[in-house]
Amino acid sequence: MKKGLFVGLTTLDLIYQAAQLPDSNQKIVATDYVVSAGGPATNAAIAFRHLGNQATVLSVVGAHPMSHLILTDLQEQGVHLADLHPTRSEPPPVSSIIVTQATGERAVISINAVNTAATPDQIPSHILQDIELQAVDIVLIDGHQMAVGRSLAQQAHTQNIPVVIDGGSWKPGFDTVLPFVTYAVCSANFHPPGCQSEVEVMRYLSDFNIPYKAITYGEKPITYGDRTQIGYIPVPTIQAVDTLGAGDIFHGAFCHFILQTDFVTALDQAAQVAAYACQFFGTRRWMAGLE
């Protein structure tokens, strides 16, 4: 059993399934809904745990009454929380999501971690000890706790622990993390300064000597680059029910598979898991069918 540390954002997700998005000043009735913990690092940790590993989320959740909904969900999923600010009384970040029933496409409004940013001196001592003792097998950084992520990425790199970034979008400060990254797995929305094309993004990442890079494009093939080549990996064709969290689940599955196999195979297997998850509403129901 491998152990992963997932550093970044934890939200409370309110997910609604509806026939269509509401028009201006219109009220609609949802056909289904889910309340669960969310956020890139958190969803990735839950997927990693479900695939048979130990997972710790390093994030800010706090002690607000709504925080207990997050804590309960993480406990049910078997994911440990290392809270960077456990006494924080303000509400945790909340995301409201509407999933269109016919297409599986989602619309999201949320608060990121700007108001809950922590500093490296808030990292719990047992997390630092695990890194130092190499009790962690892989670290994922989603960029929402950049200062903490940078500190841990640097320490993990020193200990030869692989570091993965979830490059869902460019965030200020990512350039300070990239020198310590082993696997940069980014979305098509990841645009570093001055980069618009795929070639420019790949070149930017290569300038940081990142050995393994990939860019995902939803239902389109994944572009990858390793030490020797650029290639493309097709993704499964499915009828999507819900694409929410697909990238997060992809990253969690990638962290699982990369500890067992090569880069290209891990990307391919992670795509299989993410595609399967998209055939279920919400970010949890897929796990009942993938035991």
Rank of each mutant, 00 (worst) to 15 (best):
S206Y: 02
A275C: 12
V235H: 07
M66I: 03
A240Q: 01
V201T: 13
A266N: 02
A82C: 00
L267T: 04
I249S: 08
H64Q: 04
L5E: 07
V177A: 13
F257D: 04
G78I: 04
V264E: 11
A156F: 07
P179K: 05
D207Y: 03
I230N: 09
R49K: 15
H80A: 15
P91T: 06
A288M: 08
T243F: 08
P172E: 13
I233A: 04
P92H: 06
D268V: 00
M287E: 06
E200Q: 15
G282W: 05
D175A: 15
G194R: 05
P40N: 14
L244W: 07
F281W: 04
E198V: 14
K171V: 08
F281A: 06
F190W: 01
I127Q: 02
T216D: 00
G231Y: 03
I238W: 07
Q75M: 12
Q154G: 12
G8L: 06
S67L: 03
V94P: 05
I210M: 03
D23S: 14
G62N: 09
A18N: 06
P172C: 06
N160R: 12
T283C: 11
G173D: 07
D121I: 05
V264P: 02
L21E: 06
V136I: 15
G282Y: 03
V241D: 03
P172T: 14
T261R: 01
